[in-house]
Structures are given as C-alpha cells and as structure tokens.
C-alpha cells in the first residue's frame, strides 16, 4: 500500500463514520452546525495524529500486557491538551463542544488506530494514517453538520462571521437540529455513502 492510498482510505473507502461506524457519539452530538462538526473533526484529527505518532515511537518499549492502558494514557494526555488549548484560544467553540472534548478519549476511532495501525507500523505511515483518518472523520462531521444546519436552521456556517451564509429566512425543519434529526440525517447519509463507495471501488 503506498502512502497516497494510506492517506486517502479515510475519506470514502474506510471512512470512520460512514463505513466503519466509529466515533458515533460526537458525530451525532456536536453536528448542529457545520462549524461545530468541523471543529470537533479537527480536534480529533490532532489527537489522532499525535497519539499515532507517540504510539509508533514507543511501541517497542511497551510490555504487551500494559499496551492498552499505556495507549489510553497517551491519548488522554493529548485530549487534555486539546481541551486546554481550545479553551484558551477558541473559547466559543470550547463552549459549544462542551463535554465532548474530554470524550474524544473514548472515541473508539482513536484507540482503534493506535492499536490496529500505529502499534504495527513505522512513524511516517502512522502519521499519514492518523491524518487521513482524522480528516475523513472531520469531513463526515462537517457534511452531517452542514446537512442538519441547512435543513434545520436555513443557514450554513463554516467559520462564524467569515464563511457564514443564510439560505432562507425563518424556521427550517427544526427536527434536524434536535436530537432525532441527528439519527435520521446520519441514517440517510450512510446509505448515500454506501452507494458512492460501491461506484468508486
């Protein structure tokens, strides 16, 4: 497998959300707008890349039996870092994402990549893998956030005040910004993603 395939697999072929169904909790919870989805996706990407990097460096120094606890400590450290950094520099996003920032630590995607990929591969491949998977995750969250925001509130926010569009005035289909809409929208998107995947591969 060359590095391009390694990188691009996260977008469609092995997309964490649409195909592997990993990390669904933040996916459903924070995607009330495209911006929130993007922010969560990028925060997860950072944790994924950094933990993949560290795990692939220390993989030979860790006794097999404490492998998982060690990985968890590594991941939790980066999650806490992200938490403090977002609170300091993007406080609005920090408030929006709330409890789901510390919960990146139990995102099965992150531990899954450490265990399944980074602990078996070299440093460079691990970084590429983390970056591809993370960006694939971010893409899925942004798409879901965009769908829900457009249908539910009639606007599209990629960056507040900079890339913000109002598509129509008044209330949209409110259900899509509420909890049930998250499930419905994701259900249809998974179906679509399956079609796209079958076309491409």
């Amino acid at each position: 497998m060359n590095q391009w395939q390694n990188f691009s697999k996260g977008f469609i072929k092995d997309n964490p959300v649409f195909v592997l169904f990993l990390g669904l909790c933040p996916t459903l919870a924070v995607t009330t707008s495209a911006y929130n989805g993007l922010g969560m996706g990028l925060a997860t990407t950072f944790v994924l890349v950094m933990s993949n990097l560290v795990v692939s460096i220390i993989k030979n120094l860790i006794p097999g039996k404490v492998r998982i606890p060690t990985f968890i400590v590594v991941i939790a450290s980066f999650v806490t870092m992200v938490e403090m950094l977002t609170e300091a520099f993007v406080p609005d996003l920090y408030e929006q994402l709330g409890i789901f920032i510390p919960l990146i630590v139990v995102n099965c995607l992150v531990l899954g990549r450490s265990e399944a990929f980074a602990s078996k591969n070299n440093i460079f491949s691990s970084i590429i893998d983390g970056l591809g998977m993370g960006l694939g995750f971010a893409m899925a969250l942004t798409v879901l956030g965009a769908v829900r925001e457009v249908l539910g509130s009639g606007s599209l926010t990629l960056i507040p005040d900079v890339l913000e569009f109002t598509l129509y005035q008044g209330d949209g289909m409110l259900v899509f910004v509420l909890a049930p809409g998250a499930f419905l929208a994701l259900g249809y998107l998974i179906m679509l993603a399956d079609k796209v995947k079958k076309k491409m591969y």
């Binding site: 220390i58 993989k59 030979n60 120094l61 860790i62 006794p63 097999g64 039996k65 404490v66 492998r67 606890p69 060690t70 400590v73 590594v74 602990s119 078996k120």
Partner: peptide, 20 residues
C-alpha cells in the same frame, strides 16, 4: 510486536514512566 517482556517490574515501570 512488543519487545519487552511483560514482567511485573517492567509493567509497573512502564506505566509509571508514561504517566509521569
């Protein structure tokens, strides 16, 4: 994959160092 053996001292030491 892991080179180190899973002896008790090894495990405790690793976890301690990583947490530290």
């Amino acid at each position: 994959m892991a080179n180190k053996e899973s002896t008790f001292t090894n495990m405790v030491l690793t976890l301690f160092l990583v947490t530290l």
